[in-house]
Design a protein around this nucleic acid. Structure first.
Lengths: 153, 153
DNA sequence: TATTGTTATACTCTATAACTATA
DNA sequence: TATAGTTATAGAGTATAACAATA
């Protein structure tokens, strides 16, 4: 059935995208989590670790380790929080900022390369198809979520 | 640009599919790797660990651990190899076979649910669009591969 | 001598709990 | 008393290297 073909394709996309991302990040000495953290700080500016832990959905302890490692590799550093002496702010170094900027540019190039074989009408059809699938997929995941957490409902 | 919208959608598909898969597998006491191993054996029948290591792209040592864990949880077991006393064959238990069969059925249901909002023509358009994107994506990944491994060439 | 699998060891990612300093 | 972050500890997942049994 065609539905299964589409599902298989999406699984392959998932596999390839993940493989490629893991590999290109590890060439920079980064992991998905470290990159996610860097991305948050790049988007929102200097940020206390507590908030990063919530944004990334990991433990505060884990953020300590992440920031330690990113500090070691020169991507980020800790600043004293101006009003709360318990907290620290994490900010990007020049290297961290440059890395995030390059990543954005690379993403644009990859996006263009991916649909290079399709004319504009086809790309738009693809976008609409993926939109419908994503709507359903979000529902499926949310259902499983509440089923896990909420029990009977 | 629309190309970037499509790219973002594919990233979201990747994220959702992976989140959902990790969660539903862990409810069964499985990981992606263990499931992949089970899948190989389910498809190809009893199999020496060496071949599994190559199929999964992991170290032989890792397969030992995987098979130990799967044996512990009753999904698979080791058999003596009939012709080579160095080797063992890994085969599925009834529980392992039943689990793989259920997974296939669930996959069919999920595939149908995902495109439920689209008529057959739209699904076919989506399939063709994804096909073009996948062709490019495979190239991108393969290029990065040879760039990593093969050097200048 | 080459191959299959295992024992020994280590590194990364991630979590929980106890503790310190500050609010 | 509550909050931010760190120290201590632990458990997956994965790798390499050395070793045993067999080919």
């Amino acid at each position: 059935m065609t539905a299964e073909a589409v599902f298989d394709q999406m699984l392959e996309v998932t596999l390839l995208l993940q493989t490629d991302m893991t590999r290109s990040l590890s060439a920079l000495g980064l992991t998905g989590m470290k990159t996610h953290l860097l991305w948050e700080v790049h988007q929102n500016g200097p940020c206390p670790q507590q908030r990063l832990a919530q944004a990334l959905g990991v433990s505060p302890r884990h953020v300590t380790g992440l920031v330690d490692a990113l500090g070691c590799d020169g991507f980020a550093r800790r600043l004293p929080h101006p009003h709360d002496r318990r907290a620290v702010l994490v900010e990007l170094t020049d290297k961290g900022t440059a890395t995030m900027t390059q990543m954005q540019e690379q993403r644009s190039r990859d996006a263009a390369a991916l649909v290079a074989d399709l004319d504009a009408r086809r790309v738009e059809q693809l976008r609409q198809g993926l939109d419908a699938v994503l709507t359903r997929l979000r529902e499926l995941v949310a259902d499983a979520d509440s089923g896990d957490a909420g029990g009977v409902r």
